[in-house]
C-alpha cells in the first residue's frame, strides 16, 4: 500500500440525536489530490473539522503521518473552511501577519513569505488597505495565501473556487496542482464535479454520515464501468448477436452493452465479422454520473 499521510479509522461523531459521521474510513496517499465528495449535510465539514482538531471524534482514530493526530500537527495542516472571512476593519497586511503567526510562524518568516506570495499574485498594493475595501474575490485570494503560507504537509480546501471568476479560479487551480507537484497532499471538497475530474487523483464519497465509495479515480471508474460501447458502422442496420445488446440507435451510431460472460474483444470480433467499423468508443462514466448513481443506490 502507498505511503499514507492521513488515515481515518471508524470515526464516529454524534451531536445529540444527530449522527454526523458513522464509522467513516478514508486513507489519503501522500502527494495526492484527494476529492471529498458528498451531498449537502453528508458530514464532510464535520470530517474536515475533526482532521483540523476543531472538534474531536466520539470514537475511532485519526493517524497523521504515522502518528496519532495531536496538537503539534496543527502547524502541519492548512485549512480553508467553506465559511471563511477576515476582520473587516483590519488592514490586509497586518491581518495576514496575525493569521500566519497564529499558525506558529515567526514574524520575520511570515513577513518575507507574505511578500513573496503577494508579489506572485500581484496584489502587493493591497497590503495597507482595509479588508472592507476589497471585493469578495480579492479577500478569497488573501485567505488562500494565508492558508498555504506556512507550507503545510496537508492542505484542506472546502469549496476553494467559490467567489472566484473563471480567470482567478484557474490561477488558484494551477497553484493547487503546483503545490501537489512539490509534494503537498491536498484534500479538496467541492460540488463542482468537473474540477474533481480535472485535478483529483483519489476520491471518497460520503453520504448520510458514511463512506460509500473510496479509491483512485481509475479504480472507481472501472468499478462503475457500465460495459457500454458506442460504435459507428457503415450502414444503418446492426445485426443482433449473443455477445451484446443494442441499447439505442441514432442513424448509424449504436450504443451497446456487453452481455455477461463476454469480453470487449468478443464484441469487437463479432461486429467486425459482419460490418465495417468506422468508429468505436468505450463509454466511461463521469464522476458526476458515478456520484448520482452511487447515491441513488443507497
Amino acid at each position: 500500500m502507498a505511503d499514507l499521510i492521513l488515515e481515518v479509522n471508524d470515526v464516529v461523531k454524534v451531536y445529540g440525536d444527530y449522527t454526523a459521521l458513522n464509522k467513516v474510513n478514508i486513507s489519503i496517499p501522500k502527494g495526492s489530490i484527494y476529492g471529498l465528495l458528498g451531498p449537502n449535510g453528508a458530514g464532510k465539514t464535520t470530517l474536515m473539522r475533526i482532521i483540523n482538531q476543531i472538534t474531536a471524534p466520539d470514537s475511532g482514530s485519526v493517524i497523521f503521518n504515522g502518528e496519532k493526530l495531536q496538537g503539534k500537527h496543527i502547524s502541519m495542516i492548512g485549512y480553508l473552511p467553506e465559511e471563511r472571512g477576515l476582520y473587516k476593519k483590519m488592514k490586509v497586511g497586518e491581518q495576514a501577519l496575525y493569521l500566519a503567526q497564529l499558525k506558529g510562524m515567526t514574524y520575520s518568516e511570515a513577513l518575507s513569505k507574505l511578500r513573496y506570495w503577494f508579489k506572485r499574485f500581484k496584489i502587493i498594493e493591497w497590503w495597507p488597505k482595509k479588508v472592507e475595501e476589497l471585493s469578495k474575490g480579492m479577500a478569497q485570494k488573501i485567505q488562500f495565501i494565508v492558508t498555504i503560507l506556512h507550507e503545510p504537509k496537508l492542505l484542506i480546501f472546502d469549496e476553494p473556487f467559490s467567489g472566484f471568476d473563471p480567470i482567478n479560479a484557474s490561477i488558484i487551480r494551477d497553484e493547487i496542482v503546483n503545490l501537489r507537484d512539490k509534494g503537498t497532499t491536498i484534500i479538496f471538497s467541492t460540488h463542482r464535479m468537473e474540477s474533481v475530474e480535472e485535478i483529483c487523483d483519489h476520491i471518497a464519497l460520503i453520504n448520510n454520515a458514511e463512506t460509500i465509495l473510496e479509491g483512485s479515480i481509475e479504480n472507481i471508474k472501472n468499478k462503475f464501468d457500465n460495459k457500454q460501447f458506442e460504435v459507428t458502422i457503415n450502414e444503418d442496420n446492426l445485426l443482433e448477436s449473443q455477445e451484446y445488446t443494442i441499447v439505442n440507435q441514432v442513424h448509424n451510431v449504436f450504443n451497446l452493452t456487453i452481455n455477461d460472460n463476454f469480453t470487449q474483444k468478443d464484441v469487437i470480433k463479432s461486429i467486425n465479422e459482419k460490418h465495417e467499423i468506422i468508429l468505436l468508443k468505450k463509454h466511461t462514466p463521469s464522476i458526476e454520473e458515478i456520484f448520482i448513481k452511487a447515491i441513488g443506490n443507497e
Partner: peptide, 18 residues
Amino acid sequence: IEEKTNRIVEVIISSVKP
C-alpha cells in the same frame, strides 16, 4: 459576534483552541 458574522472564526480555531 463580529468574528462569527465575519466568518473568520473557523479560520482562527483551525490554528488555536476555541
